[in-house]
Nucleic acid binder design. Structure first.
Lengths: 362, 362
DNA sequence: AAAACGAACTTGTAAATACAAGTATGACGA
DNA sequence: TCGTCATACTTGTATTTACAAGTTCGTTTT
């Protein structure tokens, strides 16, 4: 084992004293001559040790006065960077821009800058992105949209590291129940419930559904769908539920067969989101199924797509801007230590348009 | 005048040699013993000078080998933050997510983080945002979408400060000709020209147009419109050109009268972008004007809106992702000092859909 | 031809000494 | 009471000497 140079003794001694708190920022360190005697080294060697500590920003020297523990040491750990990181799955996710807009407004109003990264819904990319944020240690807080929240997350250690370091963090849109980080989300179960319940209310009895399998929102919306059916004592047919993943979604319009098979014998369809609903509308158009005459559709998110779709869609609203604002507001409160429970769930409301046929009109 | 310490002689000598280029990054500096003789100082003093240069990131020492000029001598100025700032107008601008996606891909692949801010097309917000970036001095480069580029920019000093500080910067989507910062844009004049030229080609002779007045893209697209008309020896009717600003755009659907007045007597209409075109389609729908039977529409940008509009729109394509990638790629090249001319103009291509009636079918 | 070696040169560590320059503070005098 | 000033103490600058440790490159050995 290689022996370390003598000046490292002093460097480590000072560092450990600072870390243990036995000497605090602003306090005066022993003078060079004192250290010379204490460690039985020459003054030059002591000065060399001190120059290293100075370079690391641990101490500050004042000629004629002494050497002091730098109060910038805290700054190094973090805080005061006035930087907030936002990690999200997709940029071109259709509701993302609104969410980001909400966040940006709050964040920039509070004097913070916004740093952004995308995971493309890949856990590997998520690992890299969050690792990078932690390594650089340049943010006061983190807002994360979980990646593939429907399946167990392999990056748990990273999230636990965030918790361990006491870095304020918030999940949005979804969350990992096993990680102790608060979340700001749409109440997805209620969203699925309300969508389904509305179709039942207007007289539909056999209702198909399409959900995303790889995120938690899909699971919860499905749970709401199941609850609404069972509450109305309607049977759940597995063959009427289509599970898709993120990759499927992009090319859904081309998979008419797979979709139509699941829609068979049903008069209504709950769609995971507006994108799915639009794809269903297009497929129906090609196969001479009229919406809403032959098939009623209720989707979730109530985005521009719902408004501009060839058949304007009845959709359960996603709070988008509000959700973004809430996530950012709560994070900033956490940074300032003003909040205890930053969790929030938005209660969804249904917006009625032209994609549902009323079957039981009196 | 206070005399400076002797070691500063060496520090300044090296700095000036690096700045003048008489010694280049990677090259070996004179050895400590050589400097000792050259400056007639002790080796300790020489070493002190060198330690200062090392702290400033100007040189790197290798034991047993020598002292070398750091090849990242820019690091001193920028601290090599590996941070790139993107300043854009709107988050919810419909083509923005794609552009951002392209940028993010390149930026994160190159190991940089992306910091983002929005101006909401307000010059005041633009001032604050860019001032903040300059004050914090925490970025290696800046990508900016100019605010209200159609009117003289009051933040010229800020942009000049960027140039003065030698911070690599690039404009996208538009630019201010009076500022010496390269731009990556769609060739908007050609876009306007191609849209108009296509309508002329298929037999339209009286063509109206709607342009945005407060950004340069609007002016250039108008210029292309004018050129196509004059090339075909068609008259330009001022009463058929509607100028709108950003505020107008949002509520355009409600201003049927204002729009219809300009469309009078025309068989075709050039729209500033897909958003405008969609509003025109909606207005036409309400007033029993059939598209494309009664009115042909060509828009610019070829976004999702063009695809999903109730009448799929013939549109001149905006490169979005490609443009984002190009802007980011060129900026990174600038940061690395690999590029001289970072300007780029994308040549637009027209995508034909169902919003144009062919009048001269043979 | 390839490996081993060694001389010469590089930076790194460490000490002793000397004086300069800036700071804090208590003693002194107005 | 207040300001001045000397003094002790702090860090800053500078030199000289010595040896350690790592690199380079040409020479020698295998």
């Amino acid at each position: 084992m290689k022996q370390q140079p003598k000046y490292m003794k002093i460097v480590e001694w000072v560092k450990s004293r600072v870390e243990s708190g036995s000497i605090k920022p602003g306090e005066k360190l022993n003078s060079e001559n004192e250290l010379t005697e204490m460690f039985e080294l020459s003054r030059q060697t002591v000065r060399h040790a001190i120059s290293i500590l100075e370079k690391d920003g641990i101490i500050e020297k004042r000629q004629g006065s002494g050497t002091y523990i730098s109060n910038v040491f805290n700054r190094k750990r973090m805080e005061n960077t006035m930087n907030i990181a936002v990690v999200t799955t997709y940029v071109d996710d259709y509701i993302f821009p609104s969410i980001l807009k909400g966040m940006e407004e709050v964040i920039s109003d509070a004097g913070y800058t916004l740093q952004i990264a995308f995971t493309h819904n890949s856990v590997e990319k998520e690992y890299n992105v969050i690792k990078n944020i932690l390594d650089r240690n340049m943010v006061d807080g983190i807002i994360v949209e979980p990646t593939k929240s429907g399946i167990p997350n392999p990056n748990v250690e990273l999230y636990n590291e965030i918790v361990k370091r006491n870095i304020p963090a918030i999940f949005f849109n979804s969350y990992y129940p096993e990680i102790q980080i608060p979340h700001v989300v749409l109440n997805d179960k209620v969203a699925g419930y309300k969508a389904t319940q509305y179709l039942i209310e207007v007289g539909h009895t056999r209702i198909s559904a399409i959900f995303k399998s790889d995120d938690r929102q899909g699971h919860l919306r499905y749970a709401g769908y199941v609850e609404a059916l069972s509450e109305a004592r309607l049977r759940l047919f597995d063959e009427n539920v289509l599970w898709i993943d993120t990759e499927d979604l992009r090319g859904l319009t081309l998979e008419s067969k797979r979709v139509l098979k699941r829609l068979k014998d049903t008069t209504g369809c709950i769609c995971y989101n507006d994108e799915v609903a639009q794809a269903v509308v297009k497929i129906c158009g090609k196969h001479d199924i009229k919406v809403p005459k032959d098939l009623s559709i209720v989707s979730i998110d109530n985005s521009d797509i719902a408004v501009n779709c060839e058949v304007p869609l009845t959709s359960v609203a996603h709070p988008t801007i509000k959700l973004g604002k809430m996530a950012a507001t709560n994070l900033i409160k956490m940074i300032k230590g003003e909040i205890l429970d930053a969790n929030y769930e938005f209660e969804p409301e249904i917006t009625k348009r032209n994609s549902v046929k009323i079957l039981n009109e009196k």
